[in-house]
Write a protein that binds this DNA or RNA. Structure first.
Length: 596
RNA sequence: GGUCUCAUAGCUCAGCUGGAUAGAGCAACUGCCUUCUAAGCAGUAGGUCUUUGGUUCGAAUCCAAAUGGGAUCACCA
């Protein structure tokens, strides 16, 4: 931020003036002063002892003296060992505060001129969303918002995996056991209904395998020879040939799933600018394969299968097209990458996909590079860790997944229960209460999943996730609600949030200075979150800001303050905290209530 | 076995390009509501940052190895 840069510049000047050594301001490293010492910024003198030929304390003292006299920002200093702690003048903080007050776009970067596509969610259409998908959806949405705040033009894309053997399994089970059941007739949400048949398939399939094994067949072979599996494969072929009945069933069942997904997406508050469907893109990769063969990047084996040699990149040889000419996973992605690029010429293409596919994306990028694609460099795999349960890993086949819709409902129930227990629901209409519960439930859930570094595997503890105390979404939401109450009262009293209303105020309380220092950090935090693709950076910031404000709130009175300028300043400070809490939570896809 | 990745308080997590006595939250204990929302605030207790070496004024952070988790190495997606 600018204040830090200014002080770095002063130190650079001081080093030159006092010791005649040249250090560029950008090389002058400042760090936040630890709480137990007075000051806001700390300069470490150890690295300069050799050049200067003096002890660290002496250097600190000399620099401090110089800065106190020559640097307009510096109020005072202290030297502890080799650490020079600098205190910043109150009016410098206040001026920074006035500046951000007057800039409604504070934290929003200038347009970068870059196009970024963020692909996330990308569900299979054979079963409903679960907890793992929630992490993906929340991450994708949030990263897209963060990139927008960094000035990029962003397109949110969802590549729906609507074809393949897994869909056929649900279809087959439905054909055999469905009896014409529909979401309407059964009252079951579409994606859950289709998921039900996927489970039924798996159950019957396993029985067949066990049966074959009991009759002496090897398990591996039984898996391939089980009649249900053969039927499913047959169905996939029929689908690829466009057989009418199969395609009709596929369309019908997918439409149920989409209706279910739409509902879930709406509930969890994520959205997309563009949908891609694998049924519409899976053929495109073959063109890339032809191109690769022509360019001799790929080679054909005698059985007709097509391969790429990536041993130079330590990635081994990789199949890109089957012997029978059908496409594999990577084939489709080669095609989709080009399609996306044609639709929206991107500088960067972010794939929000779990880290189990790290190898796949290394291969994808390596191949695109070999093909000389201009967009290859822009491929970025936002690889996030899996979500574990206290009982261990989630396995859909073993039924240990946490269903997304159920989880959301439980969170809403908990929000209602907690709110009622605290007796905080007075004066709410039924509709308002309902909205509040949803806001709190989603706040708790999203914050819980987003506060952890995306790259890291995380543990989902259901008991902790519904906690509304401490480092949680509702804690931050609560801070916003509190401030809203203050602003309502201020408004009733006819006090406006006004920069000019505290011109003569300068007696900053320690907690007020801390709050300003947090506010001023916002643009830097947005930048860092963007460069790391890490909503967790924003989440931590929002928490620190809320904490700093609560400390202020506790220690300093607003409406009992007799000094009018101080009172007006504190109302303005509160308003700005509310604004930045809302903005940072917004980057996480979390709404903040006016009352709770 | 090859490659990649992770290891910080009882539990869940922070710790920026190396800097002071390693920080939060939960759980435990102690205070603070006739005053702006106590879903809050303040405090106590809790650590050989997995281990061992190395780099240097200084290492949780960088390098190497070991140990223990996890992922991946399909003509599945």
């Amino acid at each position: 931020m600018q204040l830090q840069q200014a002080i770095s510049q002063r130190i650079s000047e001081a080093l030159k003036a006092l010791f005649d050594i040249s250090v560029d301001a950008s090389q002058v490293a400042l760090q936040p002063t630890r709480k137990e010492f007075a000051g806001s910024f700390t300069f470490v003198t150890f690295p300069y002892t050799k050049q200067v030929g003096k002890g660290p304390e002496q250097i600190g003292q000399a620099l401090g003296d110089y800065l106190k006299e020559h640097a307009a920002e510096v109020k005072d200093f202290n030297v502890v060992k080799g650490f020079l702690n600098l205190e910043v003048k109150e009016n410098v903080w206040l001026n920074l505060f006035r500046e951000l007050m007057q800039n409604p776009a504070y934290g929003q970067a200038e347009p970068s001129g870059k196009n970024v596509i963020v692909e996330y969610s990308s569900p299979n259409t054979n079963k409903p969303l679960h907890l793992g998908h929630l992490r993906n959806n929340f991450l994708g949405y949030s990263v897209a918002e963060i990139l927008k705040a960094n000035g990029h033009k962003v397109l949110k894309a969802n590549l729906v995996n609507d074809r393949g053997i897994h869909i056929c399994k649900s279809m087959l089970a439905y054909q055999k056991m469905g009896n014409g059941e529909t979401p309407a007739s059964s009252g079951i949400k579409g994606d859950h209904l289709v998921g039900k048949y996927y489970v039924l398939f798996d159950k019957a399939y396993k029985e067949q395998i066990d049966d074959l094994v009991a009759r002496g067949m090897e398990k591996e072979e039984a898996k391939k020879k089980a009649p249900l599996m053969l039927e499913a494969q047959e169905m996939l072929q029929k689908w690829e040939q466009g057989e009418e009945e199969t395609v009709a069933l596929w369309k019908q069942m997918n439409s149920w799933v989409y209706a279910g997904f739409d509902e879930s997406y709406k509930t969890i508050g994520v959205d997309f600018d563009k949908f891609y469907y694998e049924s519409g893109t899976y053929m495109l990769g073959k063109e890339r394969v032809e191109e690769g063969l022509a360019k001799e990047v790929f080679f054909k084996k005698p059985d007709g299968s097509v391969w790429v040699d990536l041993t130079d990149d330590v990635l081994d040889q990789k199949l890109v097209l089957r012997g029978d000419g059908t496409s594999v996973y990577i084939t489709q992605d080669l095609g989709t990458a080009e399609l996306k690029y044609n639709d929206f010429p991107y500088d960067q293409s972010v794939y929000v996909v779990a880290d189990e596919q790290n190898y796949h994306f290394q291969v994808l990028k390596a191949i695109l590079k070999k093909l000389g694609k201009p967009y290859a460099e822009g491929i970025y795999h936002l690889s996030y860790g899996m979500v574990d349960l206290p009982s261990g890993k989630m396995k859909s086949r073993e039924g240990t997944v946490v269903d997304a819709d159920e989880l959301v409902q439980e969170m809403v129930d908990t929000a209602r229960q907690q709110t009622e227990e605290l007796g905080k629901i007075e004066g709410f209409t039924e509709q308002e209460a309902k909205e509040l519960y949803h806001t709190l439930a989603m706040g708790a859930l999203k914050y819980f999943l987003l506060r952890v570094d995306p790259k890291k595997r995380m543990l989902f503890n259901p008991q902790e996730s519904i906690d509304f105390k401490g480092n949680t979404g509702p804690f931050i939401q609560y801070t916003h609600a509190r401030i809203s109450a203050i602003l309502r009262k201020a408004s009733e009293m006819g006090i406006a949030v006004d920069v000019a209303a505290f011109d003569d105020f300068e007696n900053l309380h320690e907690t007020e200075q801390e709050v300003i220092s947090q506010l001023v950090n916002f643009p830097e935090v947005v930048k860092e979150a963007g460069s790391l693709y890490a909503p967790s950076v924003i989440a931590n910031y929002a928490y620190e800001l809320a904490k700093a404000y609560n400390r202020f709130y506790q220690e300093v009175s607003i409406f009992n303050e007799t000094d009018e300028q101080a009172r007006k300043f504190r109302i303005a400070l509160s308003a700005m905290v509310a604004r930045f809490v809302k903005a940072s939570m917004g980057l996480l896809g979390i709404a903040v209530p006016e009352r709770m």
